[in-house]
Amino acid sequence: MISIRKSNQRGGADFGWLKSQHTFSFGNYYDEQHMGFSALRVINDDRVAPDSGFQTHGHRDMEIISYVLKGEIAHKDSEGNVAVLPPGEFQLMSAGSGIRHSEFNPSISKELHFLQIWIQPNVYGQTPGYQQKDFGQEHGLTLVASPDGKNGSMVIKQDAFLYQLILSASKEASLPASKSRHYYVHLIEGELEVENQKLTPGDGAKIENIDELQLKAVDQNVKALVFDLP
């Protein structure tokens, strides 16, 4: 079974310095039909104006993933981590027992475009953690996060797996699946056929009750994120 969430159906927010589209309920956007999917709670598509950003604020007991599409994030947190995320890099911040951080666009001329993803953990009150990695541009499915860090992936505190999907036009990839698991695909660029339905940029797909997840680039290069969830 597959359910498509079109890009233009997402919630939105415009604060001037920040323009955001929300796949699931977040902030002032609330839709009881879209509160998350399995352990996946948030996918925010954020565009931050030059020399602007999120001031220091706190989180706890949430796995927070940032993926930079354009520009850079200047990151600081209460655990002493100070870092810059360039385009193509992933950051995983485990908020655990509590962490405060800021995210800022350090450029005075270029917009920052990134995805912020929240996944609910399966353990609570843990020591906060920080991971950051570039997984390259290899075609096919590349494992980005997993419970045990296999294949060099970042370690997430949930029985969840996140993949980066890159395909050239007309190429295909597949992921072994289980009918007891939940799958979500978020398309970043290109046109992607998922279980015989077409996605365009910003679209998402909830997928359940399958034995294998079939993914095919239509007639453009594709970049997407694929979630394997409990």
Rank of each mutant, 00 (worst) to 15 (best):
99 I>M: 05
3 S>W: 03
65 I>S: 10
114 F>C: 00
154 M>T: 08
45 D>V: 02
76 K>C: 07
45 D>Y: 00
228 D>S: 15
97 S>H: 06
166 I>V: 13
188 I>H: 02
35 M>R: 11
51 D>V: 10
48 V>Q: 00
7 S>V: 12
56 T>L: 14
22 H>L: 00
67 Y>P: 03
197 Q>D: 09
13 A>G: 15
2 I>G: 04
165 L>R: 08
180 S>M: 11
124 Y>I: 06
72 E>M: 08
136 G>H: 07
9 Q>S: 06
108 I>D: 13
148 D>V: 13
128 P>G: 12
65 I>H: 04
23 T>L: 11
107 S>P: 04
181 R>C: 00
219 D>W: 06
205 A>L: 06
131 Q>F: 00
31 D>S: 06
95 A>S: 06
186 H>L: 04
195 E>H: 11
215 L>H: 08
95 A>Y: 04
176 P>M: 01
32 E>R: 13
171 K>A: 13
204 G>M: 05
41 R>C: 02
124 Y>M: 02
218 V>A: 15
163 Y>C: 07
63 E>H: 03
189 E>Y: 05
85 L>C: 13
182 H>A: 08
181 R>P: 09
115 L>E: 02
73 I>P: 00
135 F>C: 00
90 F>T: 01
51 D>I: 09
161 F>D: 11
144 V>I: 14
214 Q>F: 12
83 A>V: 02
57 H>F: 05
67 Y>F: 14
174 S>V: 14
59 H>K: 09
211 D>T: 14
102 S>P: 14
105 N>S: 08
64 I>P: 10
26 F>H: 05
91 Q>M: 07
109 S>D: 00
185 V>M: 08
120 Q>C: 14
196 N>R: 15
165 L>H: 05
194 V>L: 06
190 G>N: 07
41 R>I: 03
193 E>F: 01
40 L>F: 00
123 V>Q: 15
135 F>T: 07
95 A>M: 03
190 G>L: 07
93 M>R: 07
162 L>N: 03
80 G>R: 06
210 I>W: 09
155 V>I: 14
56 T>R: 15
42 V>M: 07
194 V>T: 11
211 D>F: 10
113 H>V: 08
61 D>Q: 07
169 A>G: 12
209 N>H: 14
126 Q>C: 12
97 S>P: 02
25 S>D: 13
156 I>M: 08
114 F>T: 01
98 G>T: 10
187 L>F: 01
17 W>I: 09
148 D>N: 15
165 L>G: 04
150 K>D: 09
68 V>R: 03
58 G>I: 02
100 R>G: 12
66 S>A: 12
36 G>L: 12
129 G>R: 13
137 Q>F: 06
73 I>M: 02
122 N>I: 07
74 A>N: 09
46 D>T: 05
121 P>D: 10
8 N>Y: 15
168 S>F: 12
66 S>W: 04
153 S>P: 03
10 R>P: 13
154 M>D: 10
126 Q>S: 13
44 N>G: 08
50 P>I: 01
129 G>K: 11
186 H>I: 04
74 A>Y: 07
14 D>W: 14
185 V>C: 03
144 V>E: 01
206 K>G: 10
160 A>Y: 05
38 S>Q: 11
166 I>W: 09
123 V>I: 11
68 V>F: 06
171 K>R: 15
82 V>H: 11
